[in-house]
Design a protein around this nucleic acid. Sequence first.
DNA 1: CTGAAAGCGCTTACAG
DNA 2: CTGAAAGCGCTTACAG
Lengths: 331, 331
Amino acid sequence: MKPITIEDVARLSGVSRGTVSRVINGSQNVNSETRKKVLEVIEKLGYRPNQSARRTAGGRSSTIGIVIPMIGTEFYERLIKSMEEKLRAQWYTMMLFPVLKRDWLSKVMMHDIPNSDAAGMFLCSFDIERLFSSFRKPFEGPTVLVDSYSPLYDSIYIDNELGGYLVGRKFSHLEGSTHVIMMQEYIDSGFWPVFNSRFKGFQKALLENGKSLPHRNVHSYDFSWSAGALAARDIFDNDRPPFNIFAMSDLYAFGVMREAQLRGLRIGRDVKLVGYDDQSVARDWGITTVRQPIEEMGEKAVDLMFKRLERPGKEVESLCLKPEIVERESA
Amino acid sequence: MKPITIEDVARLSGVSRGTVSRVINGSQNVNSETRKKVLEVIEKLGYRPNQSARRTAGGRSSTIGIVIPMIGTEFYERLIKSMEEKLRAQWYTMMLFPVLKRDWLSKVMMHDIPNSDAAGMFLCSFDIERLFSSFRKPFEGPTVLVDSYSPLYDSIYIDNELGGYLVGRKFSHLEGSTHVIMMQEYIDSGFWPVFNSRFKGFQKALLENGKSLPHRNVHSYDFSWSAGALAARDIFDNDRPPFNIFAMSDLYAFGVMREAQLRGLRIGRDVKLVGYDDQSVARDWGITTVRQPIEEMGEKAVDLMFKRLERPGKEVESLCLKPEIVERESA
DNA sequence: CTGAAAGCGCTTACAG
DNA sequence: CTGAAAGCGCTTACAG
C-alpha cells in the first residue's frame, strides 16, 4: 500500500499540486471554497505531508533538537517539559537526544545532530568550548546553550556561584564544624562545571566572614543515593556536633539526613543541612535547599531560540538566572 | 554560505553525481581509485549528505523513534540506554519522544511520529489498543511494543502478575498484618496496567495459601517520594505489628522504611518490606525488591525490531520476561 | 486566486 | 565500473 501523496489529494480535489501545497502551508491566497474542498479530501484520505520532501523542496523544518547529558533525573524532566510546552505552542516538534554514554558524545554531535534536520538546536549542560576543541562544530543552524555559557552563542544559565554564596553566608554565622559534599568534576569532562562554581561561591562567603574551610572538610563522591550517607558517616565519625553540612545536591542531603537520624542526631539542631535543587525529595522531607528556576530557564531558552530563528544575524544574547534559598526545617 | 551538495563533490572529483552517491551508500560497484578520490573530496569539503533528500529520493531512513511516557526515572533511563546501545551498533540513530503531558499524547501520536521519518518505532508502556480506539493508527512502519502487550504487534514485556505472585507467596507464610501500597490505575489512562497485574498476582498467591487481603489494607497513592511515608503512617497508626508491606515501587518502600525508623520499628523484624524495581535506592538501603530484567527487555526489543525491519511480513512475535525477587535485609 | 513548470538534493534502474 | 536520466514528494516564483 503506497502512501498518499500530494498528487492524490490534488487529483481528487480537482486542483493542482501547487494549490494543495498552499492549503497545507496556510497561504492566504486560496479561495475559501477551494480550501474547504481540499481540506475535506485531506481528511478523507488521511493525507500527511511527507516532511522529508517538504524540507528538500525548501520548506522550513519544524523540529527542534535538544541534547541532554542524561535522563532519569528530575532536573531534566522539568527542564524538558517547560521547553516542550513553549515549543509546542508554536507548532514545533521536539526531538530529544540524550547522551547516555560518554562514548556517544562524539557520535551524537557529529552524526545524529547534523542528520536530524532540526531547525535549531538546544545544547544542555555541556561546556561547548571544551567540546569543540575536539569536535568540529556539528550544527550550522541556530544553537542555544542551556545551563551553560559561552560568549559565542545565545545562552541561559543559573548562577551557581551565587547559589553557593548564599549557603556560605548562611553558614558563616553558625557554630560548629562546616562540611561540603560535592561531586568531583574533571576538566576534560565536557560538562559545564556547576559543582566547582557552587564551591567557589560558598568558600568566598566563608572567607568574607573570616572563616575558612579545611581541605579535609570537602567530601567528593560520585552521584548516588548512598553517597550522602557515606559522606555523613565519615563526617560524624571524625568530627563533633554541631555539624553544618552543605550537600550540593538534594540526593546527598537526603543520605545525610537518614544517617543522622539513625544515629539520633537531630536535623535542624545537631545537624544543619542545606541541599541543592529543590527536588521533590527535599520538599517531601523538609530539607532546606537552593531552588533553581528551572522552568524559567527552559522558557527563556525557547524565547532565545525563537528570536534567533527570526533574526539569524542578531547579536549574541546571554541570560543569567538567580537561585534562591528555600528555608525549611533542616537548617 | 550555501551548504555543500553532492553536486559540488561530483564536480571536484570529476565524476557524476551517481558515482558519488554510490560511494556514500557503500556500493561495491565503484573502482577503488575513484572511491578514494571521492572520499578525499568529501573529507576536504566537509560534505554531509542531506538526509531529507536521501529519504525523499527513496533511500532508507536510519533513525528509530522511541515513545516513552516520562523521563526522570531510573526505569526509562536504563531501558533507553540498553536499546540505544544495540541500535547504535547497527548505525541507527535514536530519536526520543517523551510524552510529558497527558494532553500531548495525541499530538505525539498523530503529528510528531508520522513526521519523524523513522524507519521504525518503539512504543513503551502504553496500552496500544486503548490508545488506538481513540487515535488513528499513527505509524505505518514496523512497530514494537515495549513493556506492554497486544496480539497485533511484536511486543516484549515483563510478567507483572508473576512479580506480584512471588511477593505474595513469600508473604503468605508470615505472621502479622499484610498491606499493599500501589498506584491507582485508571482504565482510560492509556497505560499498560502494571500495578493492577502485580496486585492480581499478589492476591492470587495469598488466596492459594488460604489468606485474604481486606480491602482497607490496600493503599492507593500517587507517585512521589512522600507517598510511601504517608501510607506507612496510616498503616502504623491503625494496625499493629508485625507488618508485612508490599510497596509496589522502591520509591514507596523507601518512604515506608524511613517512617518505620522514625518510630523505632525495626525493618526486617517488626516490618517486613518488599519493594519493586530494584532501583539504586533499594540497593543502597538494603530493600528486598522485585528485579525486572530491564536491560534484557531493551535488547530483545531491538532484536524484534531488526527482525521486523528485515521481514516486514513475518508473523507477530511476543516475548514475556520473568522478574525475580532480590533478597535483602528488609524482608 | 490558480496552474504549469522549474527546482530542492538525492537514488537507482538502465545502458554501455 | 560509470554516466545520463528519470524520479522521489514537495515548494515557490512566475504568469495569468
